[in-house]
Amino acid sequence: MEDVNREMKLRNLYLIFLLTGCQSNNFIDWYEAELTLTPRVLTKTEVKVIETLRYQEKIKSLTDQGYVIVGTSMFKGGWEPRYLAVEAAMQYGATVVVITSKTVGSVTQNYNVTVPRENVGVYRGSNGSHGTFIGVSAQNVSGSYSFDLLEQKATFLAKKDNEQ
């Protein structure tokens, strides 16, 4: 049973990568490598994501503990889901990602979607005849939502023994 569950989890993980393959990942798009590590298969449990306001201090504390900086990413935009940082870390062989973000503004996005609307009516003829009619027309549904614009910085780190 455990093996089956494990297999299912692995299958789901592959599916995630497959499905997110065409999705943009700012942590990867804006990645700048500091050093290349020996390719090693990392599991998602091995990657730790730290979100901090004491960014430089945290990186220093980790480097003091024997970690090396593998690469960095810096970008501005909406909140980038942190599972994408895990994905990037797994790609570059990093086990810790230190992230900091600062709000620099907010963005409001409007949307307008055309949806079908059914029309039902009753007609009465001059000669006393009557009946119903059904038709379809278009209707616009609009709305808006806003989100914070953030400056996001990430540093990818790994233990020194993984260095090439």
């Binding site: 995630i16 730790k48 994501v49 730290i50 901090t52 306001l53 004491r54 889901p81 942190r82 940082a85």
Partner: peptide, 13 residues
Amino acid sequence: IEIYSLVAPHYNR
């Protein structure tokens, strides 16, 4: 003073 921080990311499709 911040002494520890951690993120728990979650995703589902």
